[in-house]
Simulated assay, not measured.
Amino acid sequence: MLSRMCVARSAFNVGHTLKTPIPKNFVPKNYVIRNYAREPRSRVAAQQPTASLWARLMAPAGPNAFSLGKGALAGASAMSLAALCYYGSGVKPGVCTEAHLWPKYVKDRIKATYGYIAGSIALTAGSAYTVFRTPALLNLVARNGWMSIIVTLGLMIGSGMVVRGMDYTPGFGAKQLAWMVHTGIMGAVIAPMCFLGGAVLTRAAWYTAGVVGGLSTIAICAPSGEFLNMRAPLAMGLGAVFAASLASMFVPQTTALGAGLYSLSLYGGLIVFGGFLLYDTQAIVKRAELHPMYGLKPYDPINSAISVYLDIINIFMRIAIILSGGGGNKRK
């Protein structure tokens, strides 16, 4: 009411307005203009109810649903480049500067560990290709449903626990056989990714090699133990990524909540496993240095290799999904 009175102030004063009745057919021009500009806006706002939080979360995902994940990944990439330049410049003495002081058995341990890492990747690739070319096996691993998911998780986790729990003996023995079975199961699990096409998988392999090489270089150039304090934050991040992966199975990815969970699982997982690669690389060096040469149990390169191997597999899978357009990169 006060705003309407102020709008008509140029036509007559306040006292005249309150005492004199306004003719029915008299409407000032400026009153009509201001009322036309303001009144419909207030009425439309009043007619639209405020959407609940659940309705907003279940609303269709917008075009910028993956922007937060992409921004976090870009920030992590920038930090990695800065760390590579910082540690590579030699400001602090890194692991590589101490390598010439290692005794021969430490070098042999690190060499054996990375030999098992390379063998794990080769066995996984061969297993994935074999399963993809065998329709009966591919039908088993590509099935949907809770039973298939439970069996797959059980085989992966169970075979990994068996390998880690066995004692290592040099040469070819039971632990080496269990390691081959475990890598074969991992290859069978990721075999359906071959449907993405050879071009996408080849690019993903090259990108993974670049990421792994760059992060490994950072870990080697950094001081010994620089990233070994990251275990607790990385474990928390892994828990969040795992929870998001499970929750995204129940929420459609076309909704805002589902797209956010999927973005956390995809881009957040890529960042977390990149951090684990830094940690596990320096952990390999630390174990090779500290494990006694004549201890009760020999140094176990297989257990040290499995951690880095799983980091590489997770990084490769996420890069392949992003390149295929599953991370909001579909070209229009």
Rank of each mutant, 00 (worst) to 15 (best):
A204S: 10
D300E: 07
I22G: 10
L270E: 00
M293N: 05
S77G: 15
Y294E: 13
L2A: 11
Y168M: 05
K70S: 06
A46L: 12
I321T: 09
Y309E: 03
T113H: 07
M293Q: 12
L123Y: 00
R231Q: 14
V272C: 13
I33S: 04
G115D: 06
V27K: 09
P60R: 04
K297Q: 08
V106Q: 13
K29R: 13
I312F: 01
R133V: 01
F12C: 12
G173F: 14
I218G: 03
G15M: 13
I110A: 11
D167W: 01
G274H: 04
S263N: 06
Y114F: 15
V272M: 03
K332D: 14
V131H: 02
A178F: 12
G258C: 08
A78N: 04
G165A: 07
E98F: 10
A125D: 02
Q48A: 11
Y207W: 11
F132G: 00
P28M: 04
L296M: 10
G15A: 14
G274M: 03
L137F: 15
G115N: 09
V7E: 11
L140F: 13
F316L: 14
L53K: 06
I313W: 00
I322H: 05
L310D: 02
R4C: 11
A128K: 01
S216A: 15
T217A: 15
A128P: 09
P252K: 03
F227N: 02
C221F: 04
R164N: 14
I306E: 03
S248P: 01
A128T: 04
L73F: 15
I312A: 05
L310S: 06
I33V: 14
K297F: 07
Q282S: 10
M166A: 08
L53M: 11
V151A: 15
L73C: 08
D108K: 12
T217F: 05
L196H: 02
R318T: 04
G171D: 07
T50A: 13
M161L: 15
A174Q: 06
